[in-house]
Write a protein that binds this DNA or RNA. Structure first.
Lengths: 219, 219
DNA sequence: ATAAATATTTAGACAAGCCTAAAAATATGC
DNA sequence: GCATATTTTTAGGCTTGTCTAAATATTTAT
């Protein structure tokens, strides 16, 4: 198999992530939005990826990864997440800074460099945002079942396990609130405006759209 | 100034390196050879770089960097050499492995990542091959005067300070001969076939084309 | 069920960076 | 100094990945 372009890798990665939590097909619009590209561009790339048997593409219906397309996506994701963790662990970057760097680096690191980073990091299973890192065999590691903060029972105490956003401003906000991966908090109440929580030092009402990005270990 | 493409950066870096040890202009052929591209492609890129005021280009004569073109070249070179050193120091790569990785990474690391690597490395002045690393102000550090092994006096004892080749096979050969940066050797004799040297453990006749890549601190 | 709205695809264009082939300029050898 | 060889440029073409505008398909709402 010939090497894929960075753009092709990005499309496959996006298709994977858009379909990760469902079995439905991914639409052209979704891809266009996420990749910040016009729908017409998506269509033309989808035709190419289909010709390479990396996706199953039904015009007007949507797209799904084939097994080999999924492997490519997982490989890129492994690079991305190892890089993010490496940058935080060895170069003192904050979790809010590493996504942008990783977006570029993920396409240019060799398998050898991937392997060395994994080794130095002790073959980690999760990146600084709590996202699972595909194994060297390109399987997603078993993650404990997580529950969204919006669905965490009142009075339950738990630990933040994952934050599903790469938005710098949002992550910066969480930094200032000391709401990082591993932090323990208690849900005081679920309210129409969001989730009222108690941390070691403070009480906050976390607005719905913020809370929806925060995941706790399931009870 | 808008961001340059990887290709443009590569051209500027090559022009810099081809003209580093002389004041003469760089020819299109030289560039085509070094960049593994046809001369016609060089011409068309030179026109673009000239329009951006990154080079002074006289058709049929050759090309030289302008001050701003030189800054770009030094920036890329700084990235390249910091990356090489980082890979050897922190990820256990050999000096023969790092050039290829750095060729790709040099174009995609942020200024922030450059700064963190420099800091972790203690603001180094030379890379694993003994090549000088441009400072953060984009000036080449003062290097002690070096003498080519071919021009090192018989019976002189000195230390290998620089190897001006990135060829994997050549560097691998030097590894097996234990002829690395910092190794002390004595020149037994300059011969028509090369340089006969004495290391801690062995005697070798280093062929001319190998010796010409090896540099010793000047006497 | 059909009209209106939305999503998708097609058609055609463009920029970058490469190519080949041919023309033009420069350099070399006798 | 002229003929030949070499180098460089021009002209035109190709691929990748994007775009806009228009055509077509699908979905939604009445």
């Amino acid at each position: 198999m010939q090497p894929l372009s960075e753009s092709q890798e990005d499309y496959l990665k996006s298709i994977f992530q858009l379909s990760e939590n469902s079995t439905r097909l991914v639409s052209a619009m979704e891809l266009a939005d996420r990749m910040d590209v016009k729908p017409a561009s998506v269509t033309s790339m989808l035709k190419k990826l289909a010709k390479l048997s990396l996706i199953d593409y039904t015009p007007y219906q949507g797209v799904a990864l084939t097994p080999s397309g999924k492997l490519v996506a997982l490989e890129v994701l492994r690079h991305h997440r190892l890089i993010e963790l490496f940058l935080t662990e060895f170069l003192d970057f904050g979790w809010e800074e590493v996504h942008e760097q990783a977006e570029k680096l993920e396409h240019v690191i060799s398998e050898e460099l991937e392997a060395r980073m994994a080794e130095k990091l002790g073959h980690p299973t999760h990146d600084p945002h709590g996202d699972p890192i595909p194994t060297v065999d390109l399987e997603l590691p078993e993650s404990p079942l997580l529950a969204n903060l919006l669905r965490t029972a009142e009075n339950h105490t738990g630990v933040i396990k994952r934050v599903t956003s790469q938005d710098r401003d949002f992550l910066n906000l969480l930094n200032r609130l000391e709401l990082n991966i591993g932090v323990e908090l208690r849900v005081i109440s679920q309210e129409r405006g969001g989730v009222r929580i108690q941390t070691a030092t403070d009480q906050f009402l976390i607005p719905v759209d913020m809370a929806s990005k925060i995941w706790m270990e399931a009870e």
